[in-house]
Nucleic acid binder design. Structure first.
Lengths: 336, 336
DNA sequence: TCTTTACATGAAAACGATTACATTAAATTA
DNA sequence: TAATTTAATGTAATCGTTTTCATGTAAAGA
């Protein structure tokens, strides 16, 4: 079925070298030859075998996308963005996750050493020593998407977790006029979680509000964790008026808790989240949260990576920080 | 950095053929040689170049996953399931969508003709003539996931849309005791949509309820379409008591309409959906819907495909239908 | 007309693995 | 002991493409 370059060469009455040159737009071949080759290729439906091509050129137009998990719309949007750019540039997207027992390092090593991919987009909540070492002696172009810029030897894109959390906390204090604000953090080995917590704390301090340590509870970024943490907070003798969860999933956990404790959001307590996942807009009342442009982020990462893959000389690494956007919802009342 | 088989052969003092045999567990090589090769390979961190291997063996352990769109948790769970099985079997997942201008056929041709993937999982709402033809003369193992089994020359997995919709409609009639049930269908070139509508109609007829054509409105599987269709239904002089939307997204559109028209679900009208997407459980009241085990479906598809890719002799094609599960929610009251 | 230059194309090597076939050495049989 | 079989390994071809280098031809210059 599939025809090879040799057969095409025979049909055209030229050598395989000329075919290759014609298809790759080498200026050496004459217009007539090029036309003849192209029309014959189209007629016979010839498509170069990408495996063979990648094999000999040592370049692959496959991008390896390494994520901590393949679950939820967050990562879906990331894949979507990457795929969009890949498609437009005739690249391919290979997904991989460190779910189950697999470590991020393992996934990266796999991609790096087997010649399949020509570049890597690494989304990771934290870069540990093993991964850091791998990236350092990595020969493959890599773009790191992370909650914090803590690696300089790659292009990187970070979400502005700190300023997002800061501005949301500040909004609750100065627009909504609340001071009793609790925080459910993400796991504290997660850079996003750390940055968001820092933003929350600094906003409190800058507004002259003492930080109540009891009101900072570590969660795990799941609805279940949010449920547990919010239950703990709401059963305290002195309970907060607002719960700022470090992501929307945990904020949803707060809604579940409210139902269980027979409390009303936003009357009995207010809730804020982070991420603006799809479900957030359908919560009743709508969740106040921060929108993270994850689709655009995926597109940006793929764009930078492809540029890097096509360039031989290495310009300085790009480090981009993308801002979040405050999405006001009914989950926080203005204080009367 | 990356070492080749030649260098490894030199280090071991054997030929590349022996290395290859040792690594592929050929019974011909002695235990001692095999051990020597394996330990040296581990020491030097040798990993066979998969490109070269695939190139020469004409087999690829990359699976191409073709989807109509890369968006929403539905497809995310599909990818998740496929990835899980791929990882366990040392396969890779390459995603591709027919979003934007790209047709499904284009995506398939690309995968088929370029030698990159060794098998295809094709998720498509309908198989048109072009795709049908492609699949027929396809040399690559393919598993089709579709709303309806309408192609016999491949392994296939179908969601039991008909029985799901039938049982849900029957449940509304016989358990919830409603007879005035409207339906917002999906686009009618979509097999899932067609099967679901058929299930709805047949359930009505089998229960002796006349089908009201005005109460069947074609939607587009989006919240916006669900909004438009439900608005239309609710503004009729004789309006339905229950709206059965062909998917959860459109059901969410019904919730939005309710808010806009200042109506209360389930008091003023009831809603049912199909898919059981993540957001459905957080709707207030919880959406009554049908759970589609999409993650398991992805796993199943990948499992079958990998079996097929490893087998030379072609056994009969498998055709699997997976059932849906009724998820009762507060969105439909029992009729007093 | 002869040499030089430029240009278009062809011949052949290369990439890293697998594998059919050849070869060698050891073991078995006569 | 010589002949034959068997087991383990080596040699070399192969896959489809790109690319270096060589070749031949036409145009330009002397």
């Amino acid at each position: 079925m599939t025809i090879t370059i040799k057969e095409l060469a025979q049909k055209c009455g030229v050598s395989t070298a000329t075919i290759s040159r014609a298809l790759n737009d080498d200026p050496c071949v004459t217009k007539e030859t090029k036309e003849k080759v192209l029309s014959m290729a189209a007629e016979l439906n010839y498509k170069p075998n990408l495996l063979a091509r990648s094999f000999v050129t040592k370049k692959s137009n496959i991008i390896g996308l390494v994520m901590p998990d393949i679950h939820g719309e967050f990562f879906m949007e990331l894949i979507h963005g990457v795929d969009e750019v890949c498609y437009l540039n005739k690249y391919y997207t290979m997904v991989s996750s460190s779910h189950g027992k697999r470590s991020t390092a393992e996934a990266i090593i796999d991609f790096m050493s087997r010649g399949i991919v020509g570049g890597i987009i690494l989304m990771t909540p934290a870069i540990d020593d093993e991964v850091r070492k791998l990236l350092r002696l990595n020969q493959l172009p890599t773009v790191v998407i992370s909650g914090k810029r803590d690696f300089d030897k790659c292009d990187s894109i970070s979400i502005d977790n700190y300023n997002g959390a800061y501005s949301l906390t500040d909004y609750i204090i100065n627009v909504k006029k609340f001071k009793k604000i609790a925080h459910i953090s993400g796991p504290l080995n997660n850079n996003d979680a750390i940055q968001r917590q820092r933003g929350y704390i600094n906003a409190l301090e800058d507004n002259g509000i003492a930080v109540n340590k009891n009101w900072i509870v570590e969660g795990d970024f799941t609805t279940f964790g949010g449920q547990a943490a919010s239950t703990k907070l709401l059963k305290m003798k002195e309970r907060p008026e607002i719960i700022f969860a470090s992501n929307d999933m945990m904020a949803i956990g707060c809604y579940i808790t409210a139902r269980q404790l027979n409390m009303k959001i936003p009357v009995d307590f207010g809730v804020a989240g982070f991420d603006d996942i799809f479900a957030s807009q359908f919560l009743n009342p709508r969740l106040t949260t921060l929108h993270v442009p994850i689709y655009e982020l995926g597109k940006e990462a793929a764009t930078i990576l492809i540029q890097r893959m096509n360039k031989t000389e290495m310009a300085d690494f790009k480090h981009i920080t993308v801002p979040t956007e405050l999405i006001p919802g009914g989950s926080i009342l203005p204080k009367h």
